[in-house]
Design a binder for these strands. Structure first.
Lengths: 177, 177
DNA sequence: TCAATTTTAGAATGTATAGTCTAGAACTAT
DNA sequence: ATAGTTCTAGACTATACATTCTAAAATTGA
């Protein structure tokens, strides 16, 4: 939900959520029980919808470097777009840390999905001889996921497109060797 | 302050802050005026003390790759340490985004200090011929700062030392070419 | 010593907001 | 149509917490 993304769990009031969704407060309680449960649903759904483009790009049948570049471009564009409010998964990780196991588990799940998409793409690139066999796809996938989290963090404050693109260009070099 | 780091601004109550610092509530108000002002001081002081080791490491007179490796090692150790609660600058960036200009300015300042430390170290490495002249020290410095932010984010949730070290090892490769 | 100042503990105030309750309106199915 | 159900608006309750107030205790300075 847009409100959770912009304001975080704590600061998002039920009235704001109600107004933003057009669902009256009583119905929110009827459907979800309480604010936290609503948040868990919103967070999980966010994870599935928001990262689909990335999983699709990395899954495409084409040279893996093209896929990676597409994702890096998408990130550079996305995080520097005016009005970008960060990533709900990253934001929630910070807001809840490990104080809420369910929130943490959902964040882990989606982070894992992203890492897996990179890992599979890189492994495929190795098989096809597009990437050096010496590359550790797990480590590189973790690296790229971490890169995205850093960008999402900086993007929440506001980051210039050029700066984001520079960072991505540097990161891309880890696959060049 | 430890309390702001662990719980964030919103969730940290004056009573907790009072207890943690050993300063009675009324004195906090007398000294700082209000909670936000106290937070601004704490955040700024945190930035100066917490990153000093990094600036020192990068400023040392030795091969620049050694300095960079020292920082990456420090990060891998630090963020995976049990009880690591993230970085107050990163956390605050997420909690306040750009809703509080003063908070954002303090975060920018300290992030800039980190980028500058990397930039200077890399520039020195280029001068000495330790690094390729083709390297863009600004972009690489931004890249490493971003890396640290990503690690701090993941560390707040809890990250295995090995995973953090793998990510750092991959990142180090951007200077290898 | 003792008046002036500062510090302290805890009560009081005000506000925000999560969650519940109520009574009426709208809808559904027979 | 009408009994039963669901939805809605808004009042109500309970709680948490920032901030202020108060009066007693501790400290200071002449």
């Amino acid at each position: 939900m847009v409100v959770f993304l912009a304001r975080g769990f704590e600061r998002a009031s039920i009235d704001e959520l109600s107004e933003a969704t057009g669902v009256v407060r009583q119905s929110l309680y009827h459907t979800f029980g309480d604010k936290r449960t609503l948040f868990l649903k919103a967070l999980d759904q966010y994870g599935y919808t928001r990262f689909q483009w990335l999983i699709d790009e990395l899954g495409r049948d084409r040279p893996v470097m093209e896929s990676i570049r597409a994702v890096l471009n998408g990130w550079a564009d996305g995080v520097s777009k005016s009005g970008f409010k960060g990533c709900l998964v990253c934001n929630s990780l910070i807001e809840f840390a490990d104080q809420d196991k369910e929130v943490a588990a959902i964040c882990d799940k989606h982070n894992g999905r992203i890492e897996k998409a990179f890992r599979d793409a890189i492994a495929r690139g190795k098989e096809r001889g597009e990437l050096a066999a010496s590359i550790d796809e797990r480590a590189v996938a973790e690296f790229f996921a971490n890169l995205g989290q850093g960008l999402a963090l900086q993007g929440r404050r506001g980051i210039q497109r050029q700066k984001a693109a520079e960072i991505c260009a540097v990161a891309e070099a880890v696959l060049a060797g």
